[in-house]
């Protein structure tokens, strides 16, 4: 059972970070759906509710998502439905149910770099940056490669480049964790292929991305993604199955992108 000994609601992000680093066994609270599944004792829980991080806004260049925005906010936001072929709403809209997606937060999900994450796979296929209080602003791909530090993810920025993207996932049942997921995107001749839930973290398949960018056909490029990435087995599927399905999902996603005008 989750235990919270002390709870603070900082008025500023500086204060939140100070508590996070100074207090032993402290943790930031997102929606708490994941935290509640464990049996962690948190000495000081940091609630970000007073920091106005529950928003999605759009300016000329970026769509900016605050850390406390929920998956349902992503699913229903008009700008996210309109841009990138609606890939972000599509990536989250099968996760459990509406009432769950009204709870879970973007900041917690991206910061935790869950291997099974649907959202991270889709975000990686776009021109996404994250902002951390201490670590600063950096591309999501760079953040994914760094080891986890004590920090607070405050915002996610997606550049409105006009990228067209497609998201595909394979699940045993519609609201189960994904067995494998993939996202493919295209901006002019620049393609990006991302595969996640391998079951480890999502990564960009660089060979496959390059092949598509160089005009190679979709089947060969999808095969390249399956060859260059590593897969492992767990109770949802074997490594071999994931590898075979990787080719299928990448092919489907690339075909959808190709068909978008």
């Amino acid at each position: 059972m989750l235990k919270i000994l002390d709870l603070v609601q900082p008025e500023s992000i500086d204060e939140a970070y100070k508590v996070l680093t100074e207090s032993h066994k402290s943790a930031v609270l997102g929606g708490c759906a994941f935290l509640r599944m464990g049996s962690k004792t948190i000495n000081t829980a940091i609630d970000l509710s007073k920091l106005d991080l529950n928003y999605i806004r759009e300016d000329n260049d970026y769509i900016e998502i605050g850390a406390m925005a929920t998956f349902r906010d992503i699913e229903t936001h008009p700008a996210l439905k309109e841009h990138f072929n609606g890939v972000l709403p599509k990536s989250v809209n099968n996760i459990i149910g509406v009432q769950f997606r009204n709870v879970v937060t973007v900041g917690a999900s991206v910061f935790s770099k869950y291997g099974f994450s649907d959202l991270i796979t889709a975000l990686l296929a776009l021109d996404t940056e994250v902002e951390l209080y201490k670590g600063g602003r950096m591309p999501l791909a760079q953040f994914m490669e760094e080891s986890l530090q004590k920090d607070i993810l405050t915002k996610v920025f997606i550049k409105k480049t006009g990228r067209i993207a497609s998201y595909q996932s394979l699940r045993n049942s519609s609201s189960d964790f994904p067995i494998l997921n993939a996202a493919v995107s295209k901006l002019d001749n620049n393609w990006l292929v991302v595969v996640g839930a391998r079951p480890t973290r999502a990564v960009i398949a660089t060979n496959a991305s390059e092949k598509l960018s160089n005009g190679e056909d979709i089947s060969n490029s999808a095969k390249a993604a399956a060859e260059e990435l590593s897969f492992a087995g767990n109770l949802r599927g074997s490594a071999e199955y994931r590898k075979a399905m990787c080719e299928v999902l990448v092919k489907r996603a690339a075909t959808e992108v190709m068909q978008c005008r």
């Binding site: 919270i4 609270l29 009432q99 769950f100 009204n102 709870v103």
Partner: peptide, 22 residues
């Protein structure tokens, strides 16, 4: 464990899992 929806209430009109909301 956030999976069944039986505990759904509305918070500010939005359906929300009360078992997973502090």
């Amino acid at each position: 464990t956030s999976c069944c929806g039986l505990c759904t209430v509305w918070i500010d009109g939005k359906p929300t899992l009360s078992c997973s909301t502090l």
